[in-house]
Amino acid sequence: MRSLEEILLFAVVATDFAVLGTSRLTAGIRATALQGIALGLLPIVLEPSRSAHVVGLAAGTIAVKAVALPWLLRRAIREAAVRREVEPRIGYMASMLLGAAALAGAFALARRLPLGERETALLVPIAFATVVIGLLVLVTRSKALTQVIGYLLLENGIYLFGLTQVDRVPFLVDVGVLLDVFAGVFIMGIVVFHINREFDSLSAANLSELRE
């Protein structure tokens, strides 16, 4: 089980960096969907008991993070007809390096934290790093859709950290899935925004035609 946990956490880091390094929105969406699957499987691996709650959490996480949100994002791309990120405020190479620095910093920080050996080895540092990388994407990218992907990384990091508490405060992590409601609202907001913009330009054209 230990090695499976390591593989899943490694997948989380890999998808973090995939989001940081790509300019194609579809690649970013695919990375977040993969990350959603890894996050969904983690509670089952971490909790050998496999209670109904843990299985439900896993199923819910995969349904929301790996299926529903990526589907909404793809739809938003189609509606808005955007494919690529325009030049980000920090280049892709530089943001990869910043991400690596965040990861190293998270490992150094986690070693000094008063937590069990199991959590501090991988889970907590990767959770911290995912939070920071999410914020980085959110702040440095200019397309609204990429910002949503950054927000998803941010909340995935928080979810990962919450997994350390899953046996103590049972419904806490489930509450975190509520954050995804926000992400959903965002994506719908983008769709509305673009529909609205098309509508705006159409009506403006009509107005000018009515003049002499």
Partner: peptide
């Protein structure tokens, strides 16, 4: 509404992180 949602969702996400830290 877009600005409001972006900023307050990031705020609310960080607050949730704070709740997790408090649980820890």
């Amino acid at each position: 509404v877009w600005k409001y949602l972006v900023l307050s969702s990031v705020g609310i996400a960080l607050a949730l992180f704070g709740v997790f830290l408090l649980a820890t």
